[in-house]
Write a protein that binds this DNA or RNA. Structure first.
Lengths: 174, 174
DNA sequence: TGTACATCAGTGAACGCGCGTTCACTGATGTAC
DNA sequence: TGTACATCAGTGAACGCGCGTTCACTGATGTAC
């Protein structure tokens, strides 16, 4: 189920219980094991569909620079559930199931590949494009992760978004 | 205790149990409440001392650029316990205790201030220094967080470190 | 159309477990005489 | 020096709770005759 994917993005893989997820789906917890082998199994599936959903939402009519502006925004910061799985799952995934880790790494690689493709379209060489794309992903994720982590200090969080956004934008002028 | 600070950085605030932390300190779990009011109380203290320890380790004889090179390294990626609390606690802290969130935000603000100070020393204007410092922090944290999250794919994780490092370094040439 | 039966997704009680927290108690230490 | 007592950090059994997982059962649905 994809409501699980939302819950996991909101509060991590451990916090949402199987009961909570199943109630969300209008069923009882007992029915869970008719659909998945274990909670870790669901987590891996939820991770996969989160990446698919995210990548498919980035259609070719949205330019890279406007995509980045929308990515590093207060709206994205405040909407973990429907947001990007990279920052949502980043921290703590190294203490999770191996299969889940691989699923995540694959999603990240796909994301990088997508950005690199856009850069190649813009005339950047294939090799440079990948390096550049990775740097952009690190800055995107860092910006959102830090903005979310500092929401208790509204001004700081807003400054993080603004500075991270302009810091990435500056990279495109070179 | 500061062994708690290491454990929390390694596996987050929820995973390490009070028993585990106390055994680490050579005591039993019952003695815990003679020292702290609750687990959340310990978490806030551990967060504070992690930032203090980190910031005091960055002495004035270490230049910003060499500090950043050492920060975004495989050694730092593989040593969460003694590493920087910013990437270690970043994700998931928004679901924690309010006092802990404030402690974290304060640590981040201090870190940014420290970097901004170094930039000012290098002749950057005060206002620009802060913006620049925030961008650097986001890129640092993003680099380490993504490198850790993708360790299951060794090549990808190494590429993330290399690209994030050179991406930040490029910023100093402008 | 009506009856008998197989199927199978979903139910909910039950399991063993580890958690954070409490609390009556222990036993080493330091002070008073 | 020796005894009596207060102090207090640390102990470990016990608590209530929610977790992931299992499993005997229910009850609606579809097929066979």
């Amino acid at each position: 189920l994809e409501s699980a994917s939302r819950r996991f993005r909101e509060r991590g893989f451990d916090a949402p219980s199987v009961s909570e997820i199943m109630i969300d789906a209008g069923l009882t917890h007992g029915a869970f094991y008719g659909h998945f082998r274990s909670k870790a199994d669901l987590a891996a599936s939820a991770c996969r569909i989160a990446f698919e959903e995210r990548l498919s939402a980035w259609t070719s009519d949205i330019s890279l620079s406007s995509y980045l502006d929308r990515y590093i925004s207060a709206a994205h910061r405040d909407n973990r559930g429907k947001g990007c799985p990279m920052p949502a799952f980043a921290s703590g995934i190294d203490n999770q199931d191996k299969a889940l880790q691989r699923e995540y790494a694959r999603g990240v690689a796909d994301y990088i590949e997508r950005i690199a493709g856009r850069l190649v379209d813009d005339g950047v060489s294939r090799l440079q494009a990948k390096k550049h794309a990775i740097g952009i992903v690190a800055a995107m994720v860092g910006g959102i992760v830090m903005a979310r982590a500092t929401v208790s200090n509204h001004q700081l969080s807003a400054d993080v978004l603004a500075s991270a956004r302009s810091s990435i934008a500056a990279r495109f002028s070179t």
